[in-house]
Write a protein that binds this DNA or RNA. Sequence first.
DNA 1: TTGTAAGCGTTATCAG
DNA 2: CTGATAACGCTTACAA
Lengths: 356, 356
Amino acid sequence: MKDLFIKPTINDLAREAGVSLATVDRVMNNRPGVRDATIMRVRHAVEKLGYVRNTAAASLARSRFLHFLFILPDHRDDAFCLELTRRLHDYEATMIWQCLHLTILKAPNFEPQTIKKWVTDIVPDRIDGVALFAPETPPVRDAIDHIRARGIATVALVSDQPSSTRDYFIGIDNVAAGRTAARLITRFHPHRQGRLLVITGARLERNHLERRFGFDCVVRETSSGFTVLPTVEMKRMGKDPQEIHKALAHIFRRDRDISGIYVSGGLGPDLAACLRHLKQTHAHHRKMMIVAHELTPLSRQALEDGTLDAVISQNQEDLIRNTIDVLRTKVDETSAHLADNHLRIDIFLKDNMPLP
Amino acid sequence: MKDLFIKPTINDLAREAGVSLATVDRVMNNRPGVRDATIMRVRHAVEKLGYVRNTAAASLARSRFLHFLFILPDHRDDAFCLELTRRLHDYEATMIWQCLHLTILKAPNFEPQTIKKWVTDIVPDRIDGVALFAPETPPVRDAIDHIRARGIATVALVSDQPSSTRDYFIGIDNVAAGRTAARLITRFHPHRQGRLLVITGARLERNHLERRFGFDCVVRETSSGFTVLPTVEMKRMGKDPQEIHKALAHIFRRDRDISGIYVSGGLGPDLAACLRHLKQTHAHHRKMMIVAHELTPLSRQALEDGTLDAVISQNQEDLIRNTIDVLRTKVDETSAHLADNHLRIDIFLKDNMPLP
DNA sequence: TTGTAAGCGTTATCAG
DNA sequence: CTGATAACGCTTACAA
C-alpha cells in the first residue's frame, strides 16, 4: 500500500559504492576532483540501483534563480509579439516556484546597435540565458556570438540565425509552412488553376524566403495550372492605409483570375481591411483562397468573417516552453534530452480555432 | 535590480503573522484546528508578502508517490491506443522524479464487466486517480460513479461520459472536429457540390454522433450543393477485408458524383487500402477530398501517398499532460487553475506532419 | 582526493 | 488549538 516504488537516493548510492554523499554528488554533477576508480564505483551503483536524480530536491537545495533575457521586436508583427509577451509574463507567474525570472526587452526599431548594447551591458553575469527574435543581420549575429563567447546559452526564436553560434533555433520549419500554405491553396482550390499572389512584410527576410521556397515547390509539383505573381512587399508601402489598397486594386485589374493569396508574414489591419473588401465586394472573389500566418485577434476575426480561409500558426505555448526547457537544460549542463525543437505547424480554420 | 527575487517562505509568513510554521502549514493546506482569527492573520500575511508555495519543496517533504490508473481500449483504434500507451510509458519515464506511477490496463473487448472488476478490485487505496477511455455505456458509468464515490479523481479520456460523475473530460470538442472536417471538404472543394460520404466505426457512438452533427451543420450552412449520404458503418462489416471494398464499390456505382469522404473514426488497414485503390484507379476520383481522424503510421502513409488529403488529430502529448495535471491538482486539493481541458484540434496535411 | 554537516522550504509527528 | 522539531533528497561550504 505504502510506497512500493521507493526510488533509490544518493544515500543508497553512497552506501552501495562505499563513498560519501559529497562524492556521489561530485560524480553525478561531473565535478572535478574524483579518482577515476571512484567515479566508476559510483556509476556502477547508479546502474545497479537504477538511480534517477530527484530534480525537485536538487532545485530546492540549489535554490538558484535563473534569469533569462528575451529580446523581441517591437515595431511589427505587433499582435504576435504582444501576445508572446503576455504569455511570457503568464508563464513566469505560473512558474514562479520554479525560480525563474524573465526579463523582456523590446528592440524599438530593431536597431542592431540597441540590441548589441543590451547584450554587452546587461548580460554579463546577471543573465543565465538569452532568447532572441530578430532578423538575420551581421550586428545581430555579432551580438549572439558575443553572448555565446561568455558562455551564456542562446536561442534564436522564430527566425533562425544559422550563421551565428546560437545554441538552438526554436520555431517552425518555414519551408514546410510555405508548403502547407500552397497545399491549402492549390490542392483544395476550385479550378486548379489561376494566378497566386504572395504578400509579405519584407521580401528578403529569411523567414519569407524559406516560406516562399516551400510555397513555390508545392505549386510546381502540384499542377501547371498555377502561376505565382511577383511578391507584393508591405514594407515598401508608405504609412498611408490607402496605398496597399491601391496596389492590390491595380493588380486585380491587371490579373483577373487570381485564385489565391498567401500572406506570408503577419496580417496587419490595413491589409486585413483590404482583403475583406476584396472578398466581400466581388462575388467572383469569394472563391479565392486566402491564407495568412499567425493567430492573432485580427486574424481570428478574419477567419470568423470569411476574409481568411486558413491561418498557419506556430504555437506560442510550445515556443515558450521549449525555449525555457532548452535554456534550463543548457544551464544545468544536465545534458539531458533535447527534444526536437521544431514547433508544430498549426492550421486553423474558423472551426478549430482554440479559445482566445 | 539585484536578487530582489527572493520569494517569501512560510518562515516569513510565520514571523509576519506571529505564529509557528506548523500553523502556517495548517492554514495553507486548509487543515482543521485553527482559530478563525489566526487563519485571518496568516491569510493577511500571505497577501502582504505575496507568498507563493514552493511546490518543489512541498513535493520533497511529502515525498508521496502518486499512482494513476489508465484504462484503455484494446480492440480498436488500435494504432491510436498503441501510440498512446507508448507515450504514457515515455511520460512516466521522463517524469520519474515527479513521483508518478502509472498503471495501464487494456480492456480486451471493452467488456464492461472487466472494467468494473478492475475498478472495484484494484482501485481501493492503491490508486489516486483514474483516467478512462471507454464508450459511454451504463456499466462504464456505474464503474466511474463507483470510483468517484470513494473519492478518487476520475477523468474521461477522448470520449466523454457526461452522464457519469467523472471530474473532467479531456479530449477534443468533437462537434468542432466534425465542423472542421466539413469545412475542409466543402469550402475547399472543386465544384462546391456533390455527394458526401461519412464512414464511421460505430454509428451510434457519442464521438461519432457529435462529429457527424458538426459535419452536417457546416455542410448545411455552406451551400446547398452538397448531399450527405447514409453513414457507412465499419462495425457492421464482417472480418472479410473484401466486404468494405464491395460496399464502397456498390455506393460508387450508384452515386457517381461523390466529392468527399469523411472517415469520422479511425482509419483501419482495409479501409485505407480501399480508399487508396479508389483514388488511384479513377482519375475522376483524384479530386475527391478525403479526411480522416488521428495521425497514425497508417494515416501518415495515406497522407504521404495522397490517399488522404487531411487528418484531424488530437494531440497525444497534450492529452497526457493535461490528464496528469488535472489528476494531480485534483489529488493535491490545490484547487489550482484548471486550464481549459479542451485539446487543440490539429489539422495535418502531408506538408505539416510532425516527425514520427 | 574524500568526508562532514549545515541548510533549502515544506510537511508530518509529536507534545503542550 | 498551537508550537517545536525531525525528516525529505540534494547541494555546498569547509574540513580532513
